[in-house]
Simulated assay, not measured.
Amino acid sequence: MSLKHRLRDVGAQLLWSSGLTRPSRAGRDRLNIVTFHRVLPDPAASPLPHLAVTPDFLRNALRFFAQHYTCLTLSEAAKRFFDGDQPARPLLAVTFDDGRKDNFLHGVPALRAAGIRATFFVPAGRVDDTTPLWHDELGWLARHLLEEGQGDLLGSLAGRAELADRGVHAVVQHAKGLPGPERESLLTFLRQRTGGISLPQWEGPMPWSELRQLMHEGYEIGSHSLSHDVLLDRLGADQRAEVFESKRLLEENLNTEVKSFCFPTGEYDATTLGEIREAGYQCAVTTRPGSNSRDSDPYELLRHDIQGERNRVAAGAVHVPVLAWRLSDFPGTAR
Rank of each mutant, 00 (worst) to 15 (best):
G180Q: 14
Y268D: 13
P181V: 11
S260F: 11
D152R: 14
F96H: 06
N60L: 06
H135M: 04
E278N: 10
P331Q: 13
A334N: 14
D297I: 07
G266Y: 06
A170N: 09
S46D: 06
R326W: 04
Q282D: 12
V322W: 07
L31G: 03
V39F: 01
R28F: 03
P55F: 01
F244I: 14
N60C: 02
T265V: 15
L190H: 09
H106D: 04
I221T: 08
A175G: 06
F120E: 05
L31E: 04
A77H: 01
K247C: 12
A164R: 11
E251Y: 09
Q282E: 14
R126G: 00
Q213V: 03
S260V: 10
Q239A: 14
L301T: 06
L91P: 03
N253L: 03
T35Q: 03
H174P: 02
L14R: 11
V171H: 07
G196Q: 01
F82N: 00
L323F: 15
T194N: 02
R335L: 14
D305V: 11
G159T: 04
F82E: 02
R30G: 02
G204A: 08
P132S: 08
F121K: 02
D152T: 13
E220K: 09
G180V: 07
R303N: 08
H228Q: 10
F261L: 13
L232K: 08
A12C: 15
P289K: 11
R310N: 15
P123Y: 04
A78V: 09
R80C: 00
R166V: 00
A270K: 12
I197F: 12
R112L: 08
V108A: 08
Y281K: 05
L254I: 13
N32D: 06
H144C: 12
G266I: 12
G167H: 10
G125R: 04
N60V: 00
G84K: 00
Q67N: 02
D233V: 08
G27N: 07
D229S: 12
T272A: 07
G274W: 06
R310E: 11
S156Y: 06
G290L: 06
L226Y: 13
E278P: 00
I116L: 03
D42H: 05
G11H: 05
W134T: 07
T70C: 04
R160F: 10
R191D: 03
N32T: 04
P49S: 02
S260A: 15
E252T: 15
R89M: 05
L273S: 08
L226M: 15
G151A: 08
Q307W: 12
R80P: 02
I276V: 15
L92F: 09
E184L: 14
A324I: 10
F57I: 05
A93K: 01
L48A: 02
K176C: 14
E242P: 14
K79D: 09
A142C: 12
L226S: 13
H216P: 00
R288E: 04
R160V: 14
